[in-house]
Simulated assay, not measured.
Amino acid sequence: MGSKSTDIVWHDASVSKEERQEKNKHQSFVLWFTGLSGSGKSTLANAVSRKLFERGSHTYVLDGDNVRHGLNKDLGFSPEDRTENIRRIGEVAKLFVDSGQIVSTAFISPYREDRHQVRELLSDGEFIEVYVEASLEACEERDPKGLYKKARSGEIPSFTGINAPYEEPENPELTVNTEQKSIEESAQEVVDVLVNWNYIEEQ
């Protein structure tokens, strides 16, 4: 890779984030869904996005597997690559927020420091950490992609929760337990919180 250019200057847009928010009639922010594989992050993020879309909100979901098919297909699962994966997603999420949209991200994002770095990229109130809580036992029993079975057999050497760490959020804005509630109930809980916090309008 070549050296970083020092001749790059940020170019201000002709349409501001605030103007886009006003036109869209809602705040723009990141819903950062984090949790173990199999906890329901992607399913929940998409369910919330569907509810927001049906309310007229401008939304998009950045899903871990989908992003690794394109933007981050050059990255593996070492601690360094996991950090770079989240750094890139944070920068992309920031662009979505600047465009006036609500962006949901569904990534294990196992390290607290990486999630904190994304929070630091955004303005106050623009990063909402949603801990999708489910026990390792429940996630392993679900095992929707068969990854836990592969990890237990040694086919996946660095799998979060088995042979790689997951650092639970210490002070998430919202915790949703997908063992105790259905996806529909959990998605509605997220939407209700956004209404109560005046991120989106009540209907």
Score class of each variant (00 low, 15 high):
Lys23Trp: 05
His26Lys: 03
Thr6Cys: 14
Arg87Thr: 11
Ser14Thr: 14
Gly40Gln: 07
Gly76Gln: 10
Asp74Val: 04
Gln101Pro: 00
Gln27Gly: 02
Arg87Met: 10
Leu71Val: 13
Lys94Val: 02
Glu22Arg: 08
Lys51Ile: 11
Glu91Leu: 14
Arg82Ile: 12
Gly35Ala: 05
Gln27Phe: 01
Leu75Ala: 04
Gly90Lys: 12
Lys17Asp: 08
Leu71His: 05
Asn85Leu: 06
Gly90Leu: 09
Asn72Leu: 15
Ile86Pro: 08
Asn46Val: 02
Lys94Phe: 10
Gly100Asn: 10
Val92Cys: 02
Glu91His: 15
His69Pro: 03
Val30Ser: 02
Arg55Asn: 07
Asn66Gly: 06
Glu80Cys: 06
Asp12Glu: 15
Lys41Ser: 03
Thr6Met: 15
Gly40Ile: 06
Gly56Tyr: 01
Leu36Thr: 14
Ile102Gln: 07
Ile89Leu: 12
Gln101Leu: 08
Lys51His: 08
Ala47Asp: 07
Arg50Gly: 07
Ser42Ile: 03
Asp81His: 08
Asn24Gly: 04
Gly64Asn: 10
His58Asp: 01
Leu44Pro: 10
Leu52Asn: 07
Ala47Gly: 10
Pro79Ser: 05
Arg20Gly: 00
Gly100Ala: 13
Ala47Thr: 03
Asn66Leu: 08
Gly100Leu: 12
Arg82Val: 14
Arg88Ser: 12
Ala47Pro: 05
His26Tyr: 06
Ile89Trp: 00
Leu75Gly: 00
Gln21Ile: 00
Ser57Leu: 08
Leu31Pro: 00
Gln21Phe: 01
Leu31Asp: 02
Asn46His: 12
Lys17Trp: 01
Asp7Leu: 15
Arg88Lys: 11
Arg88Asp: 11
Ser14Gly: 09
Leu75His: 06
Glu80Met: 10
Asp98Arg: 14
Pro79Glu: 11
Val97Ala: 02
Phe33Gly: 03
Thr43Met: 03
Gln27Lys: 11
Phe29Lys: 01
Phe33Ser: 05
Thr83Asn: 06
